[in-house]
């Protein structure tokens, strides 16, 4: 194995300590060694250039910026957006498509009945009924178009979700679930906000998704049970 051969400041330090050992009559005290080290470090300052110092400052500022960004991202709680808000939004939009589809079919069922009656009434009335029914069928086009638009929005939300996933992976656990959940923070600004701070409280959370609530028959039975 090659003998240890210090270079630069290390070499300086070893030479200085060797000389001190040679000159000293007794082993060096801790204070004496510390003084030598301080002296060498003080001399090292001359080896750091202005460019190096600027670079160190830039790196330090960059590190602070990244730390600040991580703190801000953690504050918006991306994990909550990914695991709660986006799935909820997509479920709600899917429910919109389902509900409008059901309503459209109910409307068309009605049109079929009216169309059948059109043949049983005087021709001029029957003709008018047929025209009205045709107009309703035409209007029902909206369901397919809005459905496709909503599907696009759902796709965009899923894209955002994948980007948030990547963000969480890139920044690590500290931007995950550690931050407080925004949805649980008091937000009293909305008029009529319910107790507990839910800004949508006055909406009674809107229509429930299928399977997440009881239906009218169950509500009626429940109310009747109090009588």
């Amino acid at each position: 194995m090659a003998p240890f051969a210090p270079t630069g400041p290390d070499k300086q330090l070893w030479q200085r300590l060797d000389r001190a050992h040679t000159e000293a009559t007794t082993p060096l005290a801790r204070d004496e060694v510390a003084a030598i080290v301080h002296e060498i470090i003080a001399n090292m300052a001359g080896d750091v250039s202005a460019t190096d110092l600027k670079l160190y400052n830039e790196l330090e500022a960059l590190a602070r910026y990244i730390q600040h960004a991580k703190a801000e991202i953690a504050a918006i709680n991306p994990d909550d957006i990914r695991s709660n808000h986006i799935p909820t939004a997509t479920d709600e939009l899917d429910a919109v498509v389902g509900a409008t589809e059901k309503a459209t079919n109910t409307i068309m069922d009605g049109c079929d009945v009216i169309g059948g009656l059109a043949a049983q009434v005087p021709p001029e009335i029957g003709q008018k009924l047929t025209e009205v029914v045709t107009g309703i069928y035409e209007a029902c086009n909206f369901q397919d178009v809005t459905g496709q638009r909503i599907t696009k929005v759902v796709r965009a939300l899923k894209h955002i979700e994948s980007k948030i996933d990547a963000l969480v992976v890139a920044f690590g656990e500290q931007v995950g679930a550690s931050a407080p959940t925004p949805s649980t923070q008091p937000l009293a600004a909305a008029p009529g906000a319910a107790a507990g701070g839910d800004p949508d409280g006055y909406l009674l959370h809107g229509p429930s998704l299928p399977g997440q609530a009881i239906d009218q028959d169950e509500i009626d039975r429940l109310l009747a049970s109090f009588d």
Binding site: T104, Y137, Q143, D144
Partner: peptide, 15 residues
């Protein structure tokens, strides 16, 4: 692929 749309087109064709 959308049954509702097929029904709409079928009805309009009938009209």
């Amino acid at each position: 692929d959308y049954a509702t749309m097929r029904r709409i087109v079928r009805n309009l064709l009938s009209q």
